[in-house]
Amino acid sequence: MTDDLLHVIWLTLKVASVATALVVVPATALGYALARWDFRGKRLVSALAGLPLVLPPTAVGFLLLRLLAVDGPLGRNTLGFDLGLLLTWKAAVLAAAVMSIPLVIRTARVAFEGVEPRLEMMARTLGYSRIETFFRITLPLAGRGLLAGTLLGFTRALGEFGATVTLAGNIPGQTQTLASAIFSAQQVGDNSKADLFMLISLAVGFLAILGAELLSHDRRSSESGK
């Protein structure tokens, strides 16, 4: 029982961490592009990037499943080899990443939009190239917002259920995360187990969201002067 429990917690944290790590750089980059650049198809990109937020997670999971199926565009028949994702913990990572990326993109975009572009111009006149300006001015100024967004993405990944069970299944010891473990326990009527998992989810989720809240709140209070 404790081994099961520990494994579920460990797998959940692993899946959410890996998914967040995969997502954070591309999502931040896309958030920056959406905040700062005007390009053709910007609205389309923005809409597509937000899509997982509004679709039923099972629909997203099923879409990914079709893509990765043997005869799908990313399946063995098309690629000539097997990516070996389906029904593994990696599939859970993929599902969690796709479901959390819109949140990270959105918060990154808002964080970058909050940085005065004239400060970036100022930095250029002081001899900073575009890239240096990004790393020395823009990124530090957007930092808290980006961190809060990443934490939010992480919590979303922690709780991912619909897309995960569709793509990775709910295999105890292999792809069963907290979310699917609660579902399984409840299905077989093991309420005490479900209670335990629920309380653990509650604690982890609460800590993460509190952290995100503190980060954004701290910024407001320090901006109003010390």
Partner: peptide, 9 residues
């Protein structure tokens, strides 16, 4: 580019 113009703004 501006960073190579040696301007104090």
């Amino acid at each position: 580019p501006p960073e190579q113009r040696s301007i104090g703004y």
